[in-house]
Amino acid sequence: MTLETIAGLYNYWMVIFLMMTGFYIVLARKNLIKSVIGLNIFQTSVFLLYITMGKVNNGTAPIIPPAIVEAQKSAHESHAGAAAGGVAEHGAGVAEHGAGVAEHGAVVAEHGAGAAEAVHAAGDIVYSNPLPSVLMLTAIVVGIATTALALALVVRIREDYGTVDEERILELDRGE
């Protein structure tokens, strides 16, 4: 167990600790609302696990800086402009663009040098993985919807049984 392993894995251990805390609450606490809280903690730790995996060293959030997007846009258009001359890559679609591209032409040429630099710089930026973010984004909102469903059931249970204590409910079910 070197220091390097610890530095590389402490995030996962933290996530596991949180997960197990949530699990413990679900197992040990008999109040139904407390159990829902435990499930929530468990759920958040799963989100953290995914997000942790998506992190890349020296990375940044997967949002491309506007300068590079602009450069990409004008590069795309100037590429199309070149194709309009007869290079068959973009074919018919480009021909339709024809007039508009020609107007853009001058602007694109001015941007040209800057665009090339920006696109080059784009290769140097490291982005963290966007896929875990996307998965967890939807999971959080679905999670709150299902939590609301669980809480609604707790409310109904309280109305019918008069208690939110798991063991009391089991006793009542057995007719004690």
Binding site: A61, I63, T138, V141
Partner: peptide, 12 residues
């Protein structure tokens, strides 16, 4: 589309 955000966050 440009910064952090989207339908889920905005709705909430």
């Amino acid at each position: 589309d440009y910064g952090p955000g989207g339908g889920f966050q905005a709705g909430v």
